[in-house]
Design a protein around this nucleic acid. Structure first.
Length: 579
RNA sequence: GGUCCGGUGGUGUAGCGGUUAACAUGCCUCCCUGUCACGGAGGAGAUCGCGGGUUCGAUUCCCGUCCGGACCGCCA
C-alpha cells in the first residue's frame, strides 16, 4: 500500500510536500465543516485536517478506524508542543477508509483509566498505547544490543530444546504429555542449564541464547510463569572472566539505551551482604544498613533478648536518621505488623532525644547498655532505631525488608541511579528447618569453593560455592556459577547433597556420561531479560514489558488459556481427568 | 498452601439496611471553520461478580464461591 511517511516524522522541513500516511484514528475533533483527526501509527501521531470541501468524507469515521490519507504538509499557525510532529499538519485532499472499528472497551491513550485486567483481556488494543508499545520497542533494542555485543565477542547463539526431560528438583516443571510414549512426559525447560553445559562439552566454547524459560510456581509482580533469559556459558573461564563479560554487556546496554556510562560494579560476599543489608539482592541506592548489636545485650537482664542470644540468635538494628518525631506509636505498630510477615516476632524501637533514650525496650536497658548503643550506632538527635532480635536469618531478612520499605516510604531512593552489585560466594547449602538438615542451595553442578571442599560433609553451614548473582537496584538480575567439570568433585557433591549415585544417574545419566569425555572448565549466567527491561523502562510490573502476559494465577485473560481440551485429545494421550 | 485489598452503566470511581443508584469519561443525535483533553445542547446505557443466609426489606451486613491485584511460603 502506498505510504510515504510514518506518522512520527513530519516536521517544518516537510512543509509543501505531498504525503500519504496510514494509521489509526486516535482522536477526532469535529468542528462542523472543519475536522481534525490525530492519526496514529507505530511511530507517532500526526494531525490531519479536513477542510470544508473534505469534511464530509470522514463524517462516518470514528476512533480506531484505519485510514490512508494523502495531502499536503502545512505549517501550523499555533504549534502543538505536546506532539513530536506538532509544528505541522497534513491538509487532506483524499482519504481511503481502509477499515472501520467498533467502539473500543477502553480509551487508547497513554493515560488510560482502564484497569489491568480489562487491558489484558484486550491486550491487542493495549499494545496500541504509547507506553506498552515503547516498552516492547525498547526490549527489541536491548535484545539486538545483546546479540550484537556477544557476537562481537565470538559468542554463538544456539537454540536448545523446549521439550526436555523433567527433573523434579528446583522449580516445579510444566509437563507436556507424550502421545507416542503413553504415560510419559516432557518438561518445559526451567532454564537451558544442562544443554548449555553440554554445548561446552560439545566444544562450542562461547554460547548464548535469548531463551524462553518456564516455571510452574506462584507469580509475583516481577515474576511470570514463562519468562526470558539471556543465557550464557563460557569455557576455560573463572569468575573474573564471566563477570567481566557480563559487565561489558551491561555497560554496552546502558550506554546504547540510556546513554549512561557505568562504572565498574562493586562486589560483596553473600555473607557480608546479608549482614549489611538483610538481603541477597540489596537496593544500594540508599544507606540505612543493618548493624549487629548482639554484643550490646551480651549481659542483658531482658529475658526475651537473653533467650534469643542463648539460642544462637542475633540482634540487629537499623537507624532512621532524624525521624524519631515522624513516627507515632501507631506508625510503629504498623511496621511491627510488617516485619511479622517475614517471621519476626516483634519489632523493638528506640528514640534518641536530648541525650535520652526512650522507646519500647528503653526500660529494660541499663545506662551502660544505652551508652554503648548510642556510641555503636553513632546516634544523633532525633534518630530512630528499629531492632529485631530473632533467629539470625529472621532478624536479618525482616530488617532488610523494613529497610527497603522505609527507603521507599521516606523517599530515600534516587530513581535516576543504577546501582549494580555482584554478590558472590553463595552458600553451598541451606538449612531446612522442617527437615532438620542442609539441602543444596543451587543446582548440583555448581562448583564449591576450592578451599571449602573439605567442608562438603563436615561443615556444611560454612561451605560456600562459586555461585554469584548480579543485583541492580534491589532486583536479582542474574544468577550464575562456575560449574563442576571434574567427575570426582561431581560425585562428592552429589553425595553431599544427599543424592545417591543411582539417583543422579537416573536423573542426569546422559549428562554425567558426557562429563567423561574431556569436559572443559566452564561457567556462565542466566540474565533475567524481563527484569532488565523493567528497570530500563522504570516499571515495577513485569506485565508492562511482556507483549502477552499472564495474570497472577498464570491465566491468559485474552485467549482464556489454560482451557479444557477435547475428550478425543485426552484419549489419544491416555489421560483421564478425575472430577 | 496462607494473609490482605478489590469486583457498582462500555471504562474508571462514589455511595448506602429503604436512593429515581451519583459523578467523570466514553457512546449516540443535533449545532459549530482552528481544534489539539475542542466547545455547546439533548439522549441512551447498571437486574451493584455469582450462590446462599440474616432482615419486613440487602448493591449495602454475614458465609461460601469465582475473578483481579499485592505480599509470605515457593521460585535447586
Amino acid at each position: 500500500m502506498k505510504r510515504t511517511h510514518s506518522c512520527g516524522v513530519l516536521n517544518l522541513e516537510s512543509v509543501g510536500q505531498e504525503v500519504t500516511l496510514i494509521g489509526w484514528v486516535s482522536k477526532r475533533r469535529n468542528l462542523g465543516s472543519l475536522v481534525f483527526i490525530d492519526l496514529r501509527d507505530r511511530a507517532g501521531i500526526t494531525q490531519i485536517t479536513f477542510d470544508e470541501a473534505h469534511a464530509d468524507l470522514v463524517k462516518e469515521v470514528r476512533n480506531e478506524y484505519v485510514l490512508q490519507v494523502t495531502g499536503k504538509v502545512v505549517a501550523k499557525d499555533v504549534p502543538n508542543p505536546k506532539l513530536k510532529t506538532g509544528a505541522i499538519e497534513v491538509l487532506v485532499s483524499s482519504v481511503n477508509i481502509i477499515n472501520s472499528a467498533e467502539t473500543t472497551p477502553f480509551i487508547i491513550a497513554e493515560e488510560t483509566d482502564a484497569l489491568e485486567d480489562t487491558r489484558l483481556k484486550y491486550r491487542y488494543l493495549d499494545l496500541r498505547r504509547e507506553n506498552i508499545k515503547n516498552n516492547l520497542m525498547l526490549r527489541h533494542k536491548v535484545t539486538m544490543c545483546v546479540r550484537n555485543y556477544l557476537s562481537s565477542l565470538d559468542f554463538i547463539e544456539i537454540e536448545t530444546p523446549i521439550l526436555c526431560k523433567s527433573t523434579p528438583e528446583g522449580a516445579r516443571d510444566y509437563l507436556v504429555p507424550s502421545r507416542i510414549f503413553q504415560g510419559k512426559f516432557y518438561a518445559l525447560p526451567q532454564s537451558p542449564q544442562i544443554y548449555k553445559q553440554l554445548c561446552m562439552i560439545g566444544g562450542l566454547e562461547k554460547y548464548f541464547q535469548i531463551a524462553k524459560c518456564f516455571r510452574d510456581e506462584d507469580l509475583r509482580a516481577d515474576r511470570q510463569p514463562e519468562f526470558t533469559q539471556i543465557d550464557m556459558e563460557m569455557s576455560f573461564v573463572e569468575e573474573e572472566d564471566v563477570w567481566n563479560t557480563v559487565e561489558g554487556l551491561m555497560k554496552q546496554i546502558f550506554s546504547e539505551i540510556k546513554g549512561i556510562e557505568l562504572n565498574n560494579f562493586p562486589r560483596l560476599t553473600y555473607t557480608e551482604c546479608m549482614a549489611r543489608f538483610g538481603s541477597d539482592k540489596p537496593d544500594t541506592r540508599f544507606e540505612m544498613e543493618l548493624n549487629l548489636i548482639s554484643d550490646v545485650f551480651a549481659n542483658t537482664e531482658f529475658e526475651v533478648f537473653k533467650n534469643i542470644l542463648a539460642a544462637n540468635g542475633e540482634i540487629n538494628a537499623i537507624v532512621v536518621k532524624g525521624k524519631a518525631d515522624a513516627f507515632s506509636r501507631k506508625d510503629i505498630d504498623k511496621l511491627t505488623d510488617f516485619v511479622k510477615i517475614y517471621g519476626a516476632k516483634a519489632l523493638s524501637y528506640l528514640k534518641y532525644n536530648q541525650n535520652e533514650i526512650t522507646g519500647s525496650i528503653a526500660k529494660v536497658m541499663s545506662d551502660s547498655e544505652k551508652n554503648t548503643i548510642i556510641n555503636k550506632l553513632d546516634l544523633k538527635e532525633n534518630d530512630l532505631v528499629f531492632i529485631v532480635a530473632d533467629k539470625k536469618k529472621v532478624s536479618q531478612t525482616s530488617l532488610g525488608a523494613l529497610r527497603v520499605k522505609l527507603g521507599k516510604d521516606l523517599n530515600l531512593i534516587d530513581s535516576d541511579k543504577f546501582n549494580f552489585l555482584w554478590v558472590t560466594n553463595f552458600p553451598m547449602f541451606e538449612y531446612v528447618e522442617e527437615e532438620n538438615r542442609f539441602v543444596a542451595a543451587h543446582h548440583p553442578f555448581t562448583s564449591p569453593n576450592l578451599e571449602d571442599m573439605d567442608k562438603l560433609f563436615e561443615n556444611q553451614e560454612n561451605c560456600f560455592s562459586r555461585a554469584y548473582d548480579l543485583v541492580l537496584n534491589g532486583y536479582e538480575l542474574l544468577s550464575g556459577s562456575i560449574r563442576i567439570h571434574d567427575q570426582a568433585v561431581q560425585a562428592k557433591v552429589f553425595e553431599a547433597i544427599g543424592m545417591s549415585l543411582e539417583e543422579a544417574k537416573e536423573k542426569f545419566g546422559f549428562f554425567l556420561e558426557a562429563f567423561k569425555y574431556g569436559t572443559p572448565p566452564h561457567g556462565g549466567v542466566g540474565i533475567g531479560l524481563d527484569r532488565i527491561i523493567m528497570i530500563l523502562t522504570g516499571t515495577e510490573n513485569i506485565r508492562d514489558v511482556v507483549a502477552f502476559p499472564k495474570t497472577a494465577s498464570a491465566a491468559d485473560l485474552m485467549s482464556e488459556a489454560p482451557n479444557l481440551v477435547d475428550e478425543k485429545q485426552l484419549k489419544e494421550l491416555k489421560i483421564k481427568i478425575e472430577h
